[in-house]
Computed example of a mutant assay.
Amino acid sequence: MSEPVQDLSRRGFLAGATALGAPAPAVPAVVQRRAGIVILIDSNEPHVMGHAISYSGNLTRHFAGLGQTPPIEVVANGQGIEVFRADKSPLKEPLAALRQMYPNVGFSMCASSKSIAESKENLMIQLIDGASLVPFGVGRVVELQRKGWAYIHG
């Protein structure tokens, strides 16, 4: 005597489960909103840094039009730390203006990359006003993504 063939497709499983009185798998009713937006800069190319910074202003204006103010964090890692260096940033003035206009935008520099650059250049690197240090830039990006933040590579 042969056993009946089971329908292993999703439809067959759901029909079988419902017939047996088992509840159908739960489907989330609401998709969770992203908590914020993280933008990574890992290049010292002026156009790359400029685009990443303009993204933060454009995103702020976009969401303001929707009545929202998500936090935005620009994280500089590797060669990208140049954007937040007081001695080398080609964007000091635009960054100062951005901070003043949009307080929801924050700037973070990788402390590990900063330490490597200080060792190579034999000097202490000062950050632009408003920038802070995080232990590892890439770690900060992952930390924020795990909290539901959207990720943009600059």
Rank of each mutant, 00 (worst) to 15 (best):
S108R: 08
A150Q: 05
G139P: 01
E3I: 04
M124G: 07
Q100A: 11
S56T: 10
I116L: 14
S9Y: 10
A35S: 13
G12Y: 12
V142H: 13
I152H: 03
G154D: 08
F107E: 04
I152P: 08
P4E: 05
A97M: 09
F136I: 00
G36I: 03
V142G: 09
A150W: 06
I116Y: 06
H47I: 02
L66Y: 03
L14R: 10
I81E: 02
C110F: 10
H153E: 06
A76E: 08
V74M: 08
D87Y: 00
L91F: 13
A24H: 03
G16A: 14
G21M: 15
V74I: 15
L66P: 01
E3P: 00
G130Y: 03
R33C: 09
S113D: 07
K88H: 02
L133T: 00
V5K: 04
A96Y: 08
Q6R: 12
P70I: 15
S112R: 15
D129M: 11
D42V: 03
R99L: 14
E73A: 12
L98A: 02
V27G: 06
S119A: 15
K88W: 04
G65T: 14
T18M: 15
E118V: 15
A131W: 06
V38L: 06
A19Y: 15
K147R: 11
P135G: 01
V141N: 07
S108Q: 10
R10A: 10
V38R: 03
A29C: 03
E45G: 01
E118D: 14
S108N: 10
P103W: 05
I128M: 11
N104C: 07
L123T: 07
L95S: 06
K147N: 08
E118W: 15
V83A: 11
S89M: 02
G67L: 06
I81P: 05
A150K: 08
Y55V: 01
Q126N: 15
G57Y: 12
Y102K: 00
E143K: 14
V27K: 13
M49G: 02
N77M: 08
V31Y: 12
P4S: 00
V138L: 11
T60A: 15
P46E: 09
R10Q: 06
Q6H: 13
V138Y: 06
F84K: 01
S9A: 05
G148V: 03
T69N: 12
V48L: 03
I53D: 05
L144T: 02
T18Q: 15
I125Y: 11
G67K: 03
P28T: 01
E93G: 10
S2K: 13
A29W: 04
E73W: 13
D87G: 00
I72C: 05
S56V: 07
A35L: 11
P25K: 03
I41G: 06
L8R: 07
P94W: 02
I128T: 08
S54W: 15
R11L: 02
H47M: 04
L14F: 14
V31G: 09
T60F: 13
I41L: 14
N77A: 10
H51C: 01
H51S: 01
G57S: 11
V75S: 05
T60Y: 14
I53P: 04
A96V: 10
V74R: 02
N58S: 14
A131H: 01
V48M: 10
M49A: 01
G57E: 05
V5P: 01
I128V: 15
G154R: 08
G57A: 12
E118H: 15
A29S: 08
E143L: 12
I152C: 04
Q6W: 09
